[in-house]
Design a protein around this nucleic acid. Structure first.
Lengths: 120, 120
DNA sequence: CGGGATCCCATATGATACTG
DNA sequence: CAGTATCATATGGGATCCCG
């Protein structure tokens, strides 16, 4: 495990708890983020399309997650001021670079789902 | 985005909301899971060692996450009934297979942290 | 009509103290 | 040392209402 390590006086290393990494990791290592980014990987999508595709996300979580992704420069939001209103979300180049590892993670999940299930 | 799709009568596809994937994704697409698995990737570690390394996780979350990982067959827990008590956690082979995509995700995070930060 | 803000409750998470 | 118990708070999430 590399990066963002901090060497202690007594010789072993720890993670700096307040590093910016933690916040970003919290954003991308997140169920909805992973799914949304996966959806947008296929191309630009509208709010309702994402909601349909993810089948079970509430509009609130969708909005909230999209805003966080947008705020961190992973997602672009474009409004087409037509009637009815048309808003399109798409991945930025950074978002696409994040989509790669997330895609592998989702693939791993799909290949490993349905075995040894247990709540905790 | 592949896997676990469900074709609707009207032609477009959605994700089955209640599939086992969602639960597993929720487990691995999680900040603490990603960090813990990353720590154990270096080798077996004791409870306190993980806690030190992650610098900021509460014992409760550590226990809870370790148990969930164990319950899903990603982590092994071995007790050495000595005094003082000694408990060691390690990745199972499945855990190691999950460590790969998670490592890539953490790498991405480290390479992309500290830019365009924003809360929401 | 599609997009999304608000209200309110359930659960997740976290700090801290305490025990086998 | 390795957790568990307890309490306080943040976030998740559904239902519903509002706006362009």
């Amino acid at each position: 495990m590399s990066g963002e390590l901090h060497r202690e006086p007594d010789g072993h290393d720890v993670y700096t708890a307040q590093g910016p990494s933690r916040a970003l990791l919290d954003l991308v290592a997140n169920k909805w983020s992973a799914l949304i980014i996966g959806t947008l990987e296929e191309g630009p999508r509208r709010f309702g399309q994402i909601q349909q595709h993810l089948q079970g996300i509430s509009p609130k979580m969708l909005t909230q997650t999209l805003r966080r992704l947008q705020g961190n420069g992973l997602v672009d939001r474009v409004i087409y001021p037509a009637v009815p209103l048309h808003v399109e979300y798409s991945l930025t180049s950074r978002g696409r670079s994040a989509a790669a590892p997330l895609g592998l993670l989702r693939t791993w999940v799909e290949e490993n789902a349905g075995e040894a299930p247990r709540s905790g």
